[in-house]
C-alpha cells in the first residue's frame, strides 16, 4: 500500500524519532511511505482554543495536500480525532462551505491513526517487534472516546517480544493535558497530572507509552520534573524496535 504520512506538527518539530519509527514499521511491513510536502498542522490547537477561522485554513491545507492519497496515516490520536470528528464540523458550521465538506467527507474514511491502521486496516496483531522493558500504556482520551480504538494498541503491545506489559490503574482518566488547558488552568491540570503519575509509578514500569506525543509530552514533562526515572515513549517507537535493531 502507498501510505501518505501526516506527521503532525508536534512530532515533526519535537519528536522526529516517532515519525522515523512509523516509517520503519510501515516499510518493514512492505508498504511504501510518502511524505507529502507542504503539510504542517491539523489545526487542533487553533480549533480547541477558539480560533476557528484559523483552524479552517488548516482544514483546507490538509484536504489540498492529502486529497489524492490512498491512505493517510497519523501517529497521533488527538490529531486523527481532530480530522475525523472536527473537520466535518468546521466545514459545515464555520466555513459553511459545501465543497469543502464534500472533500472532507471523501477524505476522512482514508485517514487512520497509526495503531488503528495496523490493527483495523491491515488486521495485524504482531508486527515483529522486540522491546525488553517493563511498560505501561496510557490510553489517551481521544483514542478511547473520539476514535474508539478500544484495546487495539494493547493487543499490539502484548505481541511485542520481551515486553512486560503492566496495566495502568484508572486508565480511562485524562492526564490533564488538554492543549492550552495545561497552561490556562495549569494548577487544575497539575492536580490531574499528579494523580496520573501516581498511577504510573504504582506499576513500577520504566516506560509509559501512548499513541499520542502530546499526552506523553505532558506526562513525560511531569515524570522528568519529579526525577521519577520513568520515561515516555510513543507506541510507534516500541513497535519499530526489533531484535536486530533494538531501540535504546
Amino acid at each position: 500500500m502507498r501510505v501518505s504520512l501526516f506527521i503532525t506538527c508536534i512530532n515533526d518539530s519535537l519528536y522526529p524519532h516517532t515519525g522515523q519509527a512509523v516509517v520503519r514499521v510501515l516499510e518493514r511491513l512492505g508498504h511504501e511511505v510518502v511524505f507529502p510536502e507542504g503539510q504542517s498542522c491539523c489545526g487542533q490547537m487553533h480549533h480547541n482554543s477558539g480560533y476557528a477561522p484559523e483552524a479552517v485554513a488548516m482544514v483546507r491545507q490538509f484536504v489540498e495536500i492529502f486529497r489524492e492519497a490512498e491512505v493517510v496515516v497519523v501517529p497521533s490520536t488527538s490529531c486523527t480525532a481532530m480530522i475525523r470528528t472536527q473537520y466535518p464540523h468546521l466545514a459545515r458550521h464555520v466555513a459553511k462551505d459545501a465543497a469543502l465538506l464534500e472533500a472532507v467527507e471523501a477524505l476522512v474514511p482514508r485517514v487512520w491513526e497509526f495503531s488503528e491502521f495496523l490493527t483495523r486496516k491491515l488486521g495485524l496483531t504482531d508486527v515483529g517487534a522486540y522491546y525488553p522493558h517493563r511498560v505501561t500504556y496510557h490510553s489517551s482520551c481521544n483514542s478511547l472516546r473520539s476514535l474508539g480504538l478500544g484495546d487495539g494498541p494493547l493487543t499490539l503491545l502484548r505481541h511485542v517480544r520481551g515486553l512486560d506489559l503492566v496495566e495502568l490503574p484508572n486508565n480511562t482518566e485524562c492526564c490533564g493535558f488538554g492543549g492550552t488547558f495545561a497552561v490556562k488552568n495549569a494548577e487544575t491540570s497539575t492536580a490531574m497530572l499528579t494523580d496520573k503519575m501516581r498511577h504510573i509509578l504504582s506499576t513500577n514500569a520504566e516506560i509509559c507509552t501512548a499513541g499520542d506525543n502530546s499526552c506523553l509530552m505532558h506526562i513525560g514533562g511531569g515524570l522528568s520534573r519529579q526525577r521519577t526515572g520513568v520515561r515516555t515513549v510513543h507506541l510507534a517507537q516500541i513497535l519499530a524496535s526489533t531484535a536486530e535493531a533494538p531501540l535504546a
Binding site: 506527521i7 518539530s13 522515523q20 511524505f35 495545561a182 514533562g221
Partner: peptide, 24 residues
Amino acid sequence: PPLSGWTLSRDFPALPEQSFRDWW
C-alpha cells in the same frame, strides 16, 4: 509567561537538532 504555566509542574522538551522533515 504565559508558558510558565506549563513549567509550573512540567519540564518542556528541547527542540531536537533535526526535525522529521529535515530527516526525511
